[in-house]
Design a protein around this nucleic acid. Structure first.
Lengths: 366, 366
DNA sequence: AGAATTTATTCAAACGTTTGAATCTTGGTG
DNA sequence: CACCAAGATTCAAACGTTTGAATAAATTCT
């Protein structure tokens, strides 16, 4: 009965408890190919004893021997961003059936943590890495160490195919276009735009899509109504940006009937700012966001936004990662994929036809 | 130059590259006590070579030998609940300095996943487990297996000290009291209450606190204005509950001037429901939530709510966990702690003095 | 009946570390 | 100059698995 100090039951315990050798027990319990040749009765008996003793194979010993960790690291710029949540869900969904354990690592947009996790990824011998990098890490060759060790890397939220990383992101240009088109369809012509920080990859194409749609609809974007978010650290501080821009817009600027914000949190900030200034959304001003994160969904009025299929993207990232690992296992070079997910306009209550506008706001600012 | 197929550099590689034995290299690189006796020059040289070769110790081999995984599992009922986000942050903050890796596991309120992760916790030889269990897993003796293996368990969001698990939760009764008191201070007397699902542990004490405050203020809670959330699966569906309850409240029920919701998401649902029925928050009706999660903060009007110090709780949980592990290491039995964090009233814009109410809603329902 | 095959089980060597004990240098002491 | 204590380094055995090769026993073939 005298188990050694490590509370855990091991193969040897099971073996001696049922009178077979360690090998046989291992073969049976790990369902190795050889287990075909093990008598059914034996199998039964071994399983039962293992069960009774509460045996759980030691993953470290197994990983060491098999040289496979069954682990995929997920390195996110900020796990607490609601943006990441659905991606994480998708990744989980993709990894569950193939029995890989995701190792979630939250860099909190701090370089120090990022480096630290990079080291851990290497040490824990993760077989693949998924990087959620909506916010940029300036020097992306941080990943060089990992690449060197033949660990496939998948990027979510940024196109790094030129570095030969499979990448997965939303089609920002189409997204921008959809947003602008929606406003123009509602009859808005004077539209304020809040662009993303220039450090952020999504910003430029989104802006491009917006301009293209504006052009197509014959809308002039007044440069005095274009703002740009600063390169912030905390992503959820987009909210503050939105609030303060909203106030700026209302001071000695041309009037406007709609705001197109860079993302949902910014848009929510705009709503707050406008509301505090006495305007009403959408009666006095329409607001549209981007991403479709939870806060945008449960706010009132519900935020009209451009939905990113985040969950699906996470799922795909997981699948690619597993495929790449398998390819590598077989000795093939794994292919470099690029997927631009199609965004989708979700109309809620934060936008309304310009015709429905109250005259109140006009009066107010005249 | 022929590294073996496993792309990773190992101790032997470093050793032969610099002409020392594996032992010496190990001693130096792992900063074992013996490294005091290693000549400074040798140390220098070994470190340099290791660095150049890009050596990273194999965590599995190390764990196996040392019998320590440097890992703490964090098993959450639903990682995508904004409620978990700050807790996770706190845990990270607590684990970072002591170099434990948190293993985040998201049970998604599914029994199957929960079991699966339990197995993984055992196999990966996690040294401690933190369970975020705001939503209940009916049979909590699922954890028995883990307990049996001497792995200390910390509960967040539920008191299980009677099972001898250190527990950490907000003082729900005080929270309920604070919420009700706030409404009564604002002059509200007819208050609708949405209670939590009975499966959820927080529900009862919160309700008790509410009743106590009502009594203290001489307020009668009209039973026709008391609702209860169903035992749902998806925690963020509290929102839907809020919406539909709001609508029910407005149908042939006694009138009310405030709603005290079980949590923020429910409260946001109430705001939505009221707004869609043409009422305004807080002019026509005040709403107060519980938790202080992100969506409540960025919604407009900002949600008045009872703040749980979630981050601090996570931090403490991490520290307890590490302490318990260390105690066990020294052979001591680890003590069972209980901490009831004090909640805090955060006043935003979803509540207003009853005096300021418009007569509109009164008229509407008369 | 002996050889060849199949079925059932075990041996023993790895996987990459760590670490108590052992070895081999030194330089210092009596 | 033999002896000892540090000082510097290495040996070798573990940690708990897996797995190719070996063995032993039962079956089938010629």
């Amino acid at each position: 009965m005298g188990r050694p100090k490590t509370g855990h039951v091991k193969l040897l315990d099971v073996a001696s408890a049922c009178g077979y050798s360690v090998s046989t027990v291992s073969i049976v319990l790990s369902e190795a190919p050889l287990s075909r040749n093990v008598a059914a009765a034996t199998r039964e008996r071994i399983r039962k004893v293992a069960q009774q003793l509460g045996y759980h194979p030691d993953a470290h010993a197994r990983s060491l021997r098999r040289r496979r960790s069954q682990t995929i690291a997920v390195l996110a710029y900020d796990l607490s961003d609601p943006f990441c949540t659905p991606i994480v869900r998708g990744i989980q969904a993709g990894l569950q059936p193939v029995d890989y354990l995701p190792l979630f690592m939250d860099a909190q947009t701090q370089r120090r943590l990022f480096d630290n996790y990079l080291k851990m990824i290497l040490e824990r011998r993760a077989e693949g890495v998924i990087v959620i990098a909506s916010w940029i890490f300036e020097e992306t060759n941080l990943l060089a160490d990992i690449e060197k060790n033949q660990v496939p890397i998948i990027m979510v939220g940024r196109d790094l195919t030129k570095r030969r990383f499979s990448s997965l992101l939303v089609d920002n240009e189409v997204g921008g276009t959809l947003a602008m088109q929606h406003l123009s369809d509602l009859g808005h012509r004077r539209i304020a735009v809040i662009r993303g920080p220039d450090e952020l990859f999504d910003s430029e194409p989104r802006w491009k899509g917006i301009r293209r749609a504006a052009e197509g609809a014959g809308i002039q974007i007044d440069p005095r109504l274009v703002f740009q978010l600063p390169n912030r650290i905390d992503p959820s501080s987009g909210f503050e940006g939105g609030v303060s821009f909203a106030k700026q817009m209302l001071e000695n600027r041309p009037s406007f009937s709609a705001v197109l914000a860079f993302d949902d949190l910014t848009a929510l900030g705009v709503v707050r700012g406008l509301t505090e200034a006495g305007l009403r959304v959408p009666e006095d001003c329409s607001v549209v966001g981007f991403d479709d994160v939870l806060p945008a969904i449960v706010a009132t009025p519900g935020m009209t936004t451009i939905r990113q299929p985040l969950r699906e993207m996470g799922l795909l990232a997981a699948q690619w990662s597993v495929q790449a690992i398998e390819a590598l296992e077989q000795g093939h070079k794994s292919p470099v994929h690029l997927h631009r997910a199609t965004p989708e306009l979700v109309i809620r209550r934060s936008t309304a036809s310009v015709a429905a506008r109250r005259s109140r706001s006009e009066a107010k600012r005249a």
